[in-house]
Design a protein around this nucleic acid. Structure first.
Lengths: 250, 250
DNA sequence: CGACTAGTTGAGGCCAGTCAATGTTGGTGG
DNA sequence: CCACCAACATTGACTGGCCTCAACTAGTCG
């Protein structure tokens, strides 16, 4: 099902003006593409941005193989990206929350290399492809930021490779929880208490594990007093001990 | 041990002039950063490039944590990049051959996120960081190419994640061999017969396997008539069947 | 209320890891 | 040139961690 520009039967509680994106008033601007820009530059970026898109839980923002037309910055909510093998196998390649940019992999072939799906009701800012070049020309620091974001994505992917290639199941889950905690913290949320937006199966797919293994590990971590789990609600009781899970024998 | 600008006791068999890099005369230019550029633009890039660096087998081009000063384009030879976990664990994150660009992960933090080591005698072109901005300003198509290369790296990493997260050992090795074959082909070499530049352990590290497993799989593939192996010399006898290894049960 | 999805837990099997012995290769120096 | 050594590679026996299959529970939504 394609994404929709507006949610179904809800009366609009926000004005038309708000529907236009403004980096200058966005709380995520220091994590997002315009990080570090001055007021004048921000105004330029505002003028170049497209509209925002609203997604409901389960909506797809783009699919693998579709023409690459824009990058997206997440304003509210979260998405997962999944890569598909030729034989239909599917793997979650990332979880993305507010302030993150997605779609960076599409530039190479003018087609998206993966699929992006909303894990909850979500809003993204659209950066149309044609305008990215304009932006890059007009605002040099922004060009730098774009490179940085891509570079950051590469560094992140390499860490996931390290996780998938060399860690045991319990280490993977510990790293996953700690990395979520860190990202929530950066965004001003609690780093010890949060609600997972994805299923056990999706976590497993991301970590190269089966859902039963993930479930068992949650139970085990709880038994060991490291965390408290109630469905998708997670509380990190002992982050230090959780860190120690990573990198130790047995 | 740091890299050296020139090899030890050898009399120079190439002229000084050749030591300066020239994209316009480089056979890799259509795979490398200047792909698709016109003659005038090539000349501009030539003027911006730094010198080349020679590495011997085992030499390190850069280490994780070192200040990021340049990107590198491989002229001759090959390198491996490895990421390190805090606990000292190490994983090969990529094999890179002539025409490839490396160091792209360093932009984010002004520090390299991984280590690059030569697998054989190797020469790389140096693109000093300060000049990358100049290049991007002066030659718009080159800016586009830089983005494309980074995007390609992201897409590649995601495929590795798919491999590590969802494939059995034999599938991983088959994918690895086929991807090497493809890359040799793109560079004008035989796609069915080549010499591996890395040890079984390094292959295993890249694929998330132990060296014994890699060795056993080479033997098994040979028994099944898929390949012929003699140490590091590999001949793909039945690439089609090798492709079929990927994605089938048992 | 029934159908469905998500999650938990148990029993058993298998793939890849571990440990160990042996063979092979390539570089070095006498 | 060859003997030597260290690094690399192969193969076997055994182990164990994660997967598979399966049963059951708890929410959720028509």
């Amino acid at each position: 099902m394609p994404h929709r520009a507006q949610s179904g039967g809800l009366a609009p509680v926000i004005s038309i003006r708000d529907l236009k994106v403004h980096c200058s008033t966005c709380s995520m601007r220091e994590l997002c593409l315009p990080m570090g820009l001055g007021a004048a530059e921000l105004a330029q970026v505002d003028a170049l941005l497209g509209t925002r898109v609203k997604l409901h839980k389960g909506d797809t923002l783009y699919r693998a193989g579709e023409p690459f037309t824009a990058l997206y910055a997440i304003r509210i909510g979260s998405l997962k990206t999944t890569v598909l093998a030729e034989d239909g196998r599917e793997q979650v390649s990332g979880y993305h929350m507010l302030g993150d940019m997605i779609g960076l992999d599409g530039i190479v072939a003018d087609r998206h290399g993966c699929q992006a799906m909303a894990l909850e009701d979500t809003e993204v800012c659209v950066l149309p492809l044609q305008r990215i070049e304009d932006i890059a020309r007009a605002v040099p620091p922004l060009r730098q930021n774009l490179l940085r974001l891509m570079s950051k994505e590469i560094a992140r992917d390499q860490n996931v490779m390290l996780l998938l290639g060399s860690m045991r199941a319990d280490e993977r889950l510990a790293v996953f929880l700690l990395s979520l905690a860190e990202r929530y913290k950066q965004r001003g949320y609690s780093s010890t208490e949060f609600v997972l937006r994805m299923t056990r199966e999706e976590i497993g797919s991301y970590l190269g594990l089966k859902l039963e293994t993930v479930s068992r590990l949650f139970s085990r971590f709880q038994d060991e007093g490291l965390i408290q789990v109630q469905g998708r609600a997670v509380k990190l009781l002992d982050p230090v001990a959780l860190k120690q899970v990573v990198g130790q024998r047995g």
